[in-house]
Design a protein around this nucleic acid. Structure first.
Lengths: 222, 222
DNA sequence: CACCTAACTCACTAGTACGTACATTAGAGA
DNA sequence: TCTCTAATGTACGTACTAGTGAGTTAGGTG
């Protein structure tokens, strides 16, 4: 987290800085919510792990729920920002989709807290996401990318299966999400840590191969 | 009106029956935990939705945490019971793996609460599962099934990819789990309800085709 | 029938967690 | 320098929530 360039150049630690305080609250809150879930998260605990006091949380965010929504909004905004910068259009269809799958894999691997927040939000039936106008109006740039790759693949004859962009995105996400989100129960029951380096590398290749194989159509009933 | 005295289950509503009471607690508790998460679940609410009182919950289960663990144990035991009865050995490899994928799909579709419990347990890093000796010693019958199918497929030449049973199980589970677990955030952000009948049917076919395509090896870098 | 224990009820408590009233201070602009 | 407001700190209230103490009843057993 970089300190936003405010109107106070070189603002020191202890100075009053609303932006900095807000950012710090959001960051600590994200950890707390990701670790303990919405109900399990403690506002007092968030406050205790900062220089600021609990009073400031309410001063800036009003309630635990609005703080949680703000955390979600920030987390999703960052994800979308990354998605917007993905550039695989210059690659051939097969390599493009494989690369996209691997980038998605890496992204999930690097944003564990975000994954948890999404899982938590699903437990609550996305009720908080639905309350956020910001999140309701977030675009889904990755779908355009996939659409274009699929079209190119169909045109070149590389892809045979008639696939839908949302379905393909879902397939990729499912694999990448599950590996991270379910690592603990999976590890406990199957004795395998899917996030350990050796498995991580193999699974990263698997996503791409799985998607490409599906799109090449060799799985269809013949 | 009342059924004659008997120490067997099936006794009438208002009679004293430890087994029946315990079972009712577990069922209502499962709903409550699945709906609100571990911390969000309310012991009072569980009690209010039963004929029994809160005191009985503590009488039989001792604490909220032990009740939660008991719920997990029951849920997992049921799943394993289903897995044990799966019979796809008489099918040819391709059909066997496809059928297994579709059965897994159906099972996830039919046990939404279980899916949620697993998601919740992962938020808590499986700490409760690890506390349960029952769950630590649950076998994983489905892995044997997959292993045999993979061997048969390799032998017959249907499968080219050298795949590991756990990986294949993970691929299938990821797809089926994600569709149900993430339906709410996915629906909110992509405007598609993956559990709606029309999508449900198409996605059910997709799992099988995806796995078969992967095993046939058409996704490999050539 | 008398007895004994498992099953059950009711009223209560200690602690916790979100949220707030009120006092105070920093610092930008006049 | 003075003033005014955004930013911050302290201390507290209210409501809830997991858990319990103690007594009551059902119903199987000798």
């Amino acid at each position: 987290m970089t300190i936003p360039a405010s109107s106070h150049p070189g603002a020191a630690d202890r100075r009053r800085d609303a932006d900095r305080t807000k950012a710090e609250i959001l960051e600590v809150a994200q950890q707390e919510f990701a670790r303990h879930g919405y109900a399990g998260a403690r506002v007092d605990e968030i406050a205790a792990r900062m220089r600021t006091t609990k009073r400031m949380i309410y001063y800036y965010f009003g309630s635990k729920e609005r703080l949680y929504i703000a955390v979600l909004e920030k987390a999703y905004a960052e994800v979308r920002e990354v998605e917007r910068t993905v550039d695989v259009q210059h690659l051939a269809p097969v390599e493009a989709i494989r690369t996209l799958a691997e980038l998605t894999f890496d992204h999930h691997d690097a944003h564990r807290d975000f994954i948890k927040l999404v899982a938590i939000e699903n437990v609550h039936q996305a009720e908080h996401i639905r309350k956020s106008e910001v999140l309701a109006n977030l675009g889904t740039p990755v779908l355009d990318v996939i659409s274009r790759i699929l079209d190119a693949g169909q045109a070149s004859g590389d892809f045979v299966t008639e696939a839908d962009a949302i379905d393909v995105h879902m397939m990729i996400s499912a694999f990448c999400f599950f590996r991270v989100a379910n690592q603990h129960t999976f590890g406990a029951l199957f004795g395998r840590d899917m996030t350990a380096p050796e498995h991580r590398a193999r699974l990263r290749l698997m996503v791409g191969e799985m998607i490409v194989a599906y799109l090449r159509g060799e799985g269809s009933r013949s």
